[in-house]
């Protein structure tokens, strides 16, 4: 392993910025977040980044390392340095920049507020009884650490900037976790189709590829939701049956 690597770090704010090179001393197991901390501690204490747990559990230190969205705490320096010992670190591109590696991710919190919480009927006996096999598939979605890497990479949000039309992958699986909860009685299909904009997703699976929790966002979450929406809104036979016998609850 090299003794030193160069971090080519984006420095700037909403008005623009430039790349600045910082040489850092490596040690075994060093991750990119360690390198940023070293820069803060010894070279420039004004370098801004978010972090908390440094164990890939909180999803705070998201950035784009060599052009790809990743958690800095999980990215080993030796895996990312090129033949010249250079690593490029930039902020998430999809969100407005505040400073250096810190972006304004508040839109995600506003989207979360729009999703109605779990709704369990009063008639269900307490304590709840659910089988492991029935909760396992939603437990997968609930592993989400809200790093927003999937939101960053989603081309609907990133390239087409349709934040007004599509909630994004993180919130598709949030709704999936509620919709597939054995006890939830809320109808979530209208929200998915309309303000949620599930139709925008064309299943390129980029979100799955960047998920540090290895959640199968598209295969296990978005595709089944798309099927439910299509069944409900576009299956002529089902529409006819509903007209005759009245709507189902879910």
């Amino acid at each position: 392993m090299r003794d030193k690597v160069t971090i080519r770090l984006f420095r700037g704010n909403a008005n623009g910025g430039t790349e600045t090179d910082y040489e850092v001393t490596t040690f075994p197991g060093m991750v990119v977040l360690d390198a940023i901390h070293q820069i803060q501690g010894t070279q420039d204490s004004t370098v801004a980044c978010r972090w908390n747990c440094k164990a890939a559990k909180c999803g705070s230190c998201s950035a784009e390392i060599n052009g790809r969205p990743r958690l800095m705490c999980k990215s080993h320096v030796e895996d990312f340095a090129d033949s010249n010992g250079l690593i490029r670190v930039h902020p998430l591109k999809t969100f407005p920049l505040i400073k250096d590696l810190v972006t304004d991710v508040s839109i995600n919190y506003r989207t979360a507020e729009k999703i109605p919480p779990l709704t369990v009927s009063e008639d269900i006996p307490r304590p709840f009884k659910m089988q492991q096999i029935d909760v396992e598939r939603i437990q997968e979605f609930r592993k989400c650490i809200e790093c927003f890497l999937c939101q960053d990479v989603c081309h609907v949000l990133r390239d087409h900037n349709r934040k007004d039309g599509y909630f994004g992958p993180r919130f598709m699986i949030k709704i999936a976790a509620l919709s597939m909860h054995p006890l939830d009685t809320g109808n979530r299909l209208r929200q998915l189709k309309e303000e949620g904009g599930i139709g925008y997703c064309n299943i390129t699976k980029c979100c799955e590829e960047v998920c540090p929790e290895h959640i199968h966002l598209t295969d296990n979450g978005i595709i089944p939701l798309k099927e439910r929406v299509a069944d409900y809104y576009y299956d002529p036979l089902k529409i006819l049956i509903r007209k005759i016998v009245g709507p189902k609850k879910k």
Binding site: L118, P127, F128, K129, M130, Q131, Q132, V135, L178
Partner: peptide
């Protein structure tokens, strides 16, 4: 138990309890 009302999804026993 209140957390379950709020939406937490704990691992289950064979009887379906937490």
């Amino acid at each position: 138990r209140e957390l379950e009302e709020y939406g937490a999804v704990f691992d289950r026993t064979p009887d379906g309890l937490i």
